[in-house]
């Protein structure tokens, strides 16, 4: 069977709508009857990824494919790119400016949590071109 395919535009620097794509995905997973523990993992990982696109990359696109046994989330942006992915992945590493920190972001825990709550995560990034994060969560304990 073909996967259920969903696409979302994630607007840059819009904190009011930030998180709306992951909200829609959560709602869809609940209607599909996906177990709560996986909904929670997807919620956390996709929310963090979506927020990163808003804060660090001026927005982008989210493409989601839902299969009977897994969900694959691709977050693609045309932002500044990540020069050192290994460094960016470290707990607490953040380049968020003060204004963003004042909003409660910038603890440097987004990427580590995305990794923690997904079964696989891949980051492709080119400085000056953009970043694509691909995450998979399997629906099996």
């Amino acid at each position: 069977m073909t996967a259920l395919h969903l696409e979302f535009d994630v607007a840059g620097n819009n904190f009011v709508s930030a998180g709306s794509a992951s909200d829609e995905v959560k709602k869809t997973l609940k209607m599909l009857g996906v177990d709560a523990q996986f909904v929670r993992k997807v919620a956390i990982a996709m929310y963090e990824g979506e927020i990163n696109m808003v804060i660090h990359a001026g927005g982008g696109k989210a493409a989601v494919d839902i299969y009977p046994d897994k969900i694959v989330i691709v977050l693609a942006d045309h932002g500044p790119g990540i020069p050192d992915i290994e460094l960016a992945m470290r707990d607490g590493y953040s380049t968020a400016p003060d204004a963003i920190r004042d909003l409660g972001f910038g603890a440097g825990m987004g990427l580590p949590n995305m990794k923690k709550y997904t079964d696989s995560m891949d980051i492709q990034s080119t400085v000056g071109k953009g970043t694509t994060v691909t995450m998979t969560v399997n629906f099996a304990a």
Partner: peptide, 15 residues
Amino acid sequence: YRLDSDLSVAIEKMQ
């Protein structure tokens, strides 16, 4: 809110 007890069927309904 669940569309079907079988995830594959639920996905088809969602499509």
